[in-house]
Design a protein around this nucleic acid. Structure first.
Lengths: 251, 251
DNA sequence: TATTTACATTAACGTTACGTAAAGGTTTAT
DNA sequence: ATAAACCTTTACGTAACGTTAATGTAAATA
């Protein structure tokens, strides 16, 4: 069976422009070219196109696909593994962006009703006090006065929605963390998930997320017995475990 | 205070090329141009640049930033809200990609040791049976035989790591869902988080994620009393609530 | 058979936000 | 006087095509 550009395009669900482009960059060349200049594709090209589209669906770049397909000994699995890391990093970036955008929106809304204010009073006082009493100084030294004040300002403007989310996050962190600790591996999937959740949680209080600040905060959980006590309440060693997990997560 | 390109660039941490580009597209024009052709910026330009960089950090496009800053009555909040939706969609895309890449890797690894096999036997049998006994037919009708078989194949190849993650996910879903139900709003943040988690869960069993399939599955939770019973165990109405949440999530 | 219709070709611009030369003029310091 | 440091414009490159534009060819119809 032989195909022209349009036939092949319809078969595979891509545009004719795409096929010409793939020809141009040498990713998929027709088996032969007619005397009239038409591109003619055969079965092996159909197969190759299928492969191409498979990797494309995974978000692999055409350049990389070309490499994968060019050498049969090429380690496709290693490529995918690396690709996966890239994707995860991208997701983190986007999550941070979302986090910051959401906070900006909340801020500009200036929302927070009186009823909310009362409701969150205790919650906020606690957190603020905890932040300030001891860590205020340390954090100030590490990340500057401005950061701390912005952080506190954010805290005071938490909306009802955010409050729900934050509370839910705290519960999730506790749950996942306790499971992760039993597994014992701070690099494992559960531990890393806990670190991820913890990052999301932080995002509600810190004006901007940074890996360094995250890792620093985790270290404080171990250095200060008040935090250690909180995390080790159910299972001793949890604070250290979380610090290790976050260290790997932010590495 | 007046600045040349380099001075301003150093002050704000951007390249001179960037400043020339911003001038070119009319985003940030110098207050005046010297007789020698040098760009000279004043204080108001410094302020404007700060604004620009702020929005840029949130991932807003220069075009959009221009619009935001061009009209003081322009609704920056609405823009951010829309921007947030775009980011969330992007995150979903990337999550789906990660999901699929991970499955491809797992597949090519062909991993799963004998010890794992024994460990997961019961778990898998349960799920397989549940899938097959009744839904097998329905799903087959809706999404085709191939999808079901691929789904089952994936299930049988779950690794230890994946098993942990899946189990943790299930617990999280239950937790978040129960909190969300009390809030009563399937469009609320908790409900949407539950839908998100549910998507991640699905990703472990379905060969490729699609919104339609997700929404369809949620509908089945309501249509079939066995699933309904499972979700409504603690709180009646949970299955319906989840379906509504997922309907909004996949809209 | 003449004409329309459908399909093929190449060439080239547009998309985003700059990085990176290249080629050259100006200011400042030595 | 000369070199170093600074400024300028112009223009190519990036990823993966979408979209005309201008034109040639094959198949279907009047």
């Amino acid at each position: 069976m032989e195909y022209t550009v349009q036939k092949l395009g319809q078969l595979a669900g891509v545009s004719t422009r795409t096929l010409r482009y793939y020809d141009q960059i040498g990713l998929l060349q027709p088996s032969r070219v007619n005397s009239n200049g038409y591109r003619i594709y055969g079965q092996s090209e159909v197969n190759r196109l299928q492969q191409i589209l498979f990797y494309k669906e995974l978000g692999v770049s055409l350049d990389t696909i070309k490499e994968i397909l060019s050498s049969p000994t090429f380690d496709a699995e290693a490529v995918l593994r690396e690709h996966r890391l890239k994707l995860i990093e991208k997701r983190q970036q986007i999550e941070t962006l979302i986090c910051n955008v959401e906070k900006t929106i909340a801020e500009s809304e200036g929302r927070i009703t009186m009823s909310n204010k009362e409701k969150f009073e205790g919650f906020k006082q606690n957190l603020l006090a905890e932040n300030e009493k001891k860590y205020g100084k340390e954090i100030r030294e590490k990340y500057g006065k401005e950061t701390v004040e912005q952080s506190n300002a954010k805290l005071m403007n938490l909306s009802e929605e955010d409050y729900q989310k934050v509370t839910a996050l705290e519960k999730q962190i506790r749950d996942v963390l306790s499971q992760a600790v039993t597994s014992g591996d701070p690099a494992g999937p559960l531990a890393q998930q806990a670190a991820e959740l913890h990052k999301q949680w932080i995002c509600y209080f810190w004006p901007t997320y940074s890996k360094e600040a995250h890792a620093g905060l985790a270290q404080m959980y171990v250095d200060d017995e008040r935090f250690t006590a909180y995390y080790d309440k159910d299972q001793p060693g949890t604070a250290e475990f979380l610090r290790d997990a976050i260290a790997i997560y932010t590495k």
